[in-house]
Amino acid sequence: MVQTEMYILLSAILFVLGVMGVLFRRNAIIVFMSVELMLNATNLALAAFARHWGMESGHLFAFFVITVAAAEVAVGLALIVAIFRTKHSINIDELHQMQG
């Protein structure tokens, strides 16, 4: 049986990859996918901890995270589509109407 530590390590790596993606990618869709990666890293950690403690609340938590992530996708993609219609670009560096 694989130790819990290994799962956590994997989830940490995924999480950090997600953070890097958000910080360094400029395409809004990719940034958004990176956020999803972070959430899925969380799910992995939750599932691993749930098995470690033998308690189902971690699984429960993971379900909530999945559901909420779906809701975020719905709103996020809508926003991206809306901004693509007006600006014909989804590069987040070009979002600089406001400065100061």
């Binding site: 989830s11 999480f15 997600g18 958000v22 809004a28 940034v31 958004f32 956020v35 972070m38 959430l39 890293a41 969380t42 950690a45 939750l46 901890f49 971690g58 938590f61 995270v65 909420v68 975020e72 709103v75 996020g76 926003l79 991206i80 809306a82 901004i83 007006t86 600006k87 987040i92 979002l95 109407q97 406001m98």
Partner: peptide, 25 residues
């Protein structure tokens, strides 16, 4: 301006939520 405001808030908000939920995990 408003669309940008929404998208920025969304991206950073989702990013922050991911931190929060990972911390919770």
């Amino acid at each position: 301006k408003s669309e940008e405001s929404g998208l920025k808030y969304f991206i950073l908000g989702a990013f922050a939520s991911a931190f929060l939920v990972y911390g919770a995990a």
